[in-house]
Each structure stands twice: as C-alpha cells, then as structure tokens.
Design a protein around this nucleic acid. Sequence first.
DNA 1: ACAAAATGATACCAATATGGTATCTTTTAC
DNA 2: GTAAAAGATACCATATTGGTATCATTTTGT
Lengths: 131, 131
Amino acid sequence: MKLISRDTDYAVRALSRIARNGNKISSVSNLAKETAVPRPFLRKILQTLNKKGVVNSSKGRGGGFVLARGADKIYLVELINIFQGPIKLNQCLFKKKICHEVASCVLKSKMDALEKNMISELKSITIAVLI
Amino acid sequence: MKLISRDTDYAVRALSRIARNGNKISSVSNLAKETAVPRPFLRKILQTLNKKGVVNSSKGRGGGFVLARGADKIYLVELINIFQGPIKLNQCLFKKKICHEVASCVLKSKMDALEKNMISELKSITIAVLI
DNA sequence: ACAAAATGATACCAATATGGTATCTTTTAC
DNA sequence: GTAAAAGATACCATATTGGTATCATTTTGT
Ligand code: FES
Ligand code: FES
C-alpha cells in the first residue's frame, strides 16, 4: 500500500525545486539535473501539470516552467488527484452481494471517516511547507 | 487510490460467509457459489489465509475451511497486510536528494500521523463487525 | 533569415502487479 | 477403491506503472 506514486513524487520534487529557484523560469533539462529525475519522464509530468494549471509554460528558447500560483497554494492532495486519481477509500466491498444495507454499513462509514481525515490532512501539505 | 484490492475483498467476503454459516466447515465450492467469486481464485486465497493462520483447513472428503479464531479477532488490517503488504504511507519522497533533514520533515511527520490513525481505525474493523 | 533551444503532442515500449486458470499431488470419508 | 476435498505450483492475460522516442511548433539570439 503506497500512497504516493512515482509521478506524484517527481512532480513534488520538480515543483519544490522551481519554488526554491525563486519561481524563476526553469527548463526541464535543468530540473532533471537538479532533481535526479529522467528528463523525458519529467517533461511529460510537467506537461500535464501545465494542462492542469499547476504550472505555466513558455515555449521557445529560454522557455520553461514556473508555478502558476504561490507554493503555499499547491496542495499535495491536488497532485495525487492529478496523477493517481481521486482518493476513494470507501468503495463498497460487497457490491450488494452481501451487505445490502449500504446506508448503515459500519465499514463504509468508517472508511468515509478515514477518507475525510486523510484528505484534510493532505490538504494541509503544500509545496511551501516542503521547502 | 484504492485501499482494498480484489484479494482482500474476496477474503473478507469468504471469511464473513464462513462466519455467517456459524463457522461450520465450508468447502471452496460452496463459498465460491455463495460469494460469487471465481472458484480457483478463491481457493488460492483461502490457501494463503490458511498458511497465515486466519483459517484452518481440513483435507479430504467433507473437508474445507473454518475460521481459526473468533470473527471478532480477525482484523481488516491483517488481511490487508497479508494480501497487499504493510501500510506504508510515510515513505520519504526525496530519498535524501532534497530533504535531508529526515528527522524534522513536515511531510514525514504528517504521514506518520496519518498512517497511525489509519491503522488504528482499520484495527477496529473485524469480520464480526461486518456480519 | 535561420539555427538553437525550448515545449506540445503522441506514440511507443518494458517491467511489474493484478486477477485469474489449470494441473497434478495428497489426504480423507464413505 | 473412489470421489471429494485441500496443497502446491506453474501458468496466463490484462492493466498499470515507469520510462523513451519522435516529430511538430514556438520563441529568441545572432
Ligand atoms: S460493504 Fe458494501 S455497504 Fe457495507
Ligand atoms: S521528504 Fe524525505 S524526509 Fe522529508
């Protein structure tokens, strides 16, 4: 059971690196060196971060990426959502085969609580916190 | 992000089924029917549950599986451990590339807290609770 | 103008994990 | 002895993950 996949991990690394560089425009090549992430992979990651509005990109010579907002506004949970999909701990185990009382199911309610807690905790983790 | 894999899911189903049957000895064939799980797969699952001491098996005609202990002593977290490995949310993201201050890292401490909470919550879920 | 340096878009690939099947051996009840 | 069960294990198909390659497009310095 891992919470954070490679993509998310690398995204965090790159984003905090950019933040450390004072949000100066940073090329993939530099970031790849600074974060020890394979260049083409990092590129793909930054491209999706761009599409999702986490960073802004500029093309052409001297181009690269900057954070689209303050590092304190980029939440870990958002990155997890982007690269790993929504956090869903509360999926019904029995698909109505056994536990029909979905409304009153202990498991489901516990999972719901867990999930809520988890998400709120993850929301308190931002890139700013990590640098 | 899924918390519970198919194996664990099926294990829970089978175990609660056995529990419902009053912990009477139950064959894979019957359980497969009752839980709508593919028979050979369920068999594999029950075999590992047996190895791990969650159920006891008896071979030969009329054989099958029974719970090795009370349904209130079989914890969801244990099943997750068996089929999906230990819950480890707190893996260091930067493998010392960026965040060297492992001891004081915000991320790590938050993850630790989350993990603890999660495990303790999961410990409160037993097969008994689910039937 | 033009070449270099950058991203955009996409297609591809390898390794691993997941979900499931098949087969053969061993044990036991009848 | 035979049928019904589990034990052991090898195998397979599909999806996901992690990563590469390629070509097109944009920008800038000269
Ligand atoms: S396990 Fe499905 S609602 Fe309870
Ligand atoms: S991210 Fe590694 S200890 Fe903080």
